[in-house]
Design a protein around this nucleic acid. Structure first.
Length: 577
RNA sequence: GCGCCUGUAGCUCAGUUGGAUAGAGCGUUGGCCUCCGAAGCCAAAGGUCACAGGUUCGAAUCCUGUCAGGCGCGCCA
């Protein structure tokens, strides 16, 4: 319909140009907005306001000229000049409902489009050093909904979890597990405060003890003797080194048991949340397959690498970063940055047009250096889009809850899901713009379970299903919905519902373009409101057959759109509740 | 100190890329089930869009400054 209006107005402007009312070279962009108020018609454009100055006429005069030059159309009831010079378009009564037939025809594919770009979207990617906490849930809900939406508008989308199974954090995990294991062996350890504190460490240690008995047991004397370190962090590093020395090849067994146990837990929890990845990519694989080395060598061949204090630095300031960054440490160890460059190159080499990374907002300072590295290596940095998810600040009542994995003082995603359920959790997360800070009151989230907006939307769906069950019980003929006479729909609630349904496709594409699933969530709530209002004002079954058929078509299309929309958010659409 | 994000109803948040009278949920107040699901509907109260300037036909939206909050500024990941 918008396209049709566009053609009409273009034609009018051409006409005005031809007769000299508009300068030949006048630039313009015709845009239509859906009117908020019924007396402003169905669509409005500010075209005349933008053209008034160029044409040296008053905005209202300009608007009238355009209106007079409009060609005839079967869909337009009337066109008005209003306010300072808006042009309001009123459609003929049936026009708003044409969309119902298309929804009916296309079913759960309605709103989807033709194939577009190849996109790889990476999200959550939490270190496998502890269970997912409530903060990770936001990235999961956001990333998965976005992947589904992008896929729905026609892109080829693959989702990936980057597993940081190499590096210091996993070493700290291995050390933590080993020390707890030693306690099970009867050794007295002094457990470092900066090792992982969570109870899950005990569980993994117990597994190791069950499977390997006292094979990895070493005496406290061996471990702590001649261990000198200035500060807690270097003491931790010294302990890790000691563990590697004392355990030899067994160290890897402890580490792998830890990482794999936690990864299994993460995988399971995400699956519970209806989040399933196409691939899980291991950082360790990048290292063992020498891709990191290769990238470092490639970087050294560019002009963007230099040595200082025995370390290799990448000149990221050349690409807008605040300072240059170390790629290879003085000791010869590559940094996390190095493997991250290799990872992103690997993703590009797999043939994706666009990479989308979803990061926590605390990593925002990291964007410039990664894009810089890609550019330095001759890649187009615009192929990488980094979307930031702001932190959720957790409260219990008015008390702030910490979310540090190392301290063990956090609320797990599992606890939240078990408390409020998958649907409520996912809808709650996605009901906020991702770059908006969010106050997440756990007590409130639990208390508001019954008031969660997701039930409002699901209830509309269930109600419609119930109507059709009733129809079937009464033996009413609902098999001919396709032949319904749309002219029967004349009530204001029907007009509003029809208008909202016809907006779905716009909303979907807008949500995909802006990477904003929350647009869809808000839309679904609006749609549910329109339906509930309609439901309370009118009856569907107990009316004349022709009217009944038309109303059932309208209501069935509503059910279809709610179902499609909820699915894109990873939320179920129950037929009864 | 520098950089990024944010400031909208008592609380939690939207606001369609600068449009007409700034919206919703929760909370508060008052109505609606002999009728296809009351997890619903209808109505009321509640606002100096942090503050001050600027840009223009027109600003919650764009620019500048001030104030307040979150995050970041490692040879950690």
């Amino acid at each position: 319909m918008k396209r049709h209006l566009h053609e009409l107005f273009s034609s009018a402007l051409e006409h005005l140009r031809a007769n000299g009312a508009l300068p030949r070279d006048a630039a313009y962009e015709i845009r239509f907005a859906r009117s908020r108020q019924p007396h402003h018609g169905d669509f409005a454009t500010n075209l005349a306001l933008t053209l008034a100055k160029i044409a040296r006429r008053s905005p209202r005069e300009m608007a009238q000229l355009i209106v007079d030059a409009l060609p005839e159309s079967q869909w337009l009831a009337r066109v008005e000049v209003a306010g300072p010079g808006f042009i309001n378009v009123f459609l003929v009564p049936g026009a708003q409902f044409e969309v119902l037939r298309r929804i009916r025809e296309q079913g759960d594919r309605y709103g989807h489009a033709e194939p577009g770009r190849r996109i790889l979207i990476e999200f959550v990617s939490a270190n496998p050093t502890g269970p997912l906490h409530v903060g990770h849930g936001r990235g999961a809900a956001y990333g998965d909904a976005l992947a589904r939406i992008l896929s729905a508008v026609g892109h080829h989308v693959e989702s990936e979890y980057y597993v940081n199974d190499a590096g210091r954090q996993t070493d700290i995990l291995a050390l933590s597990v080993w020390l707890r294991y030693l306690e099970l062996c009867g050794e007295t350890t002094s457990y470092p405060e900066n090792a992982y504190q969570g109870d899950y460490i005990f569980d993994i240690a117990a597994t190791v003890h069950r499977e390997h008995a006292i094979l990895f047991c070493r005496s406290a004397d061996e471990i702590y003797s001649t261990l000198d370190a200035a500060d807690p962090e270097s003491r931790l590093d010294a302990l890790i080194q000691r563990a590697k020395d004392l355990l030899g090849p067994h160290y890897q067994t402890v580490l792998k048991t830890g990482v794999e146990t936690i990864l299994e837990d993460i995988r399971g929890e995400l699956k519970q949340l209806n989040v399933e990845y196409d691939s899980w990519f291991s950082e360790r694989a990048l290292v063992t397959q020498a891709e990191v080395e290769r990238v470092i060598a490639d970087l050294k061949r560019t002009n963007y690498m230099y040595q200082r204090d025995n370390a290799w630095w990448f000149r990221s300031t050349a690409f807008g970063d605040e300072k240059d960054r170390v790629v290879v440490r003085a000791g010869g160890e590559p940094t996390y940055f190095a493997s991250d460059i290799a990872y992103h190159l690997n993703k590009l080499d797999r043939g994706f047009d666009q990479l989308i990374d979803i990061w926590g907002a605390d990593h925002h300072g990291y964007i410039a250096r990664v894009r810089g590295a890609l550019q330095g290596l001759g890649e187009n940095p615009d192929r990488l889009t980094v979307l930031l998810v702001q932190f959720a600040v957790l409260y219990r009542g008015s008390e702030k809850v910490s979310m540090s994995t190392r301290s063990g003082d956090f609320v797990t995603l599992r606890e939240l899901r078990q408390e409020i359920g998958v649907d409520a959790a996912r809808f709650f997360y996605v009901l906020r713009k991702s770059d908006q800070h969010m106050d997440f009151d756990l007590d409130l989230a639990a208390a508001q379970t019954n008031e969660n907006p997701v039930y409002y939307v699901q209830y509309a769906h269930a109600r419609i299903c119930s109507v059709f069950r009733q129809a079937s019980d009464l033996g009413l003929d609902v098999g001919r919905l396709d032949s319904a006479d749309l002219a029967q729909l004349t009530e204001p609630q029907e007009h509003k519902l029809g208008a909202t349904l016809s907006r779905y496709s716009d909303v979907l594409h807008s949500a995909a373009r802006d990477y904003e699933p929350h647009q869809l969530a808000y839309y679904l709530r609006d749609l549910a409101t329109e339906f509930h209002t309609y439901y309370n004002a009118h009856r569907f079954l107990d009316v004349e057959p022709e009217l009944r058929l038309a109303r059932l078509l309208l209501v069935d299309a509503t059910r279809q759109i709610i179902c499609n929309g909820l699915n894109l958010l990873g939320v179920g659409a129950p037929e009864s509740m």
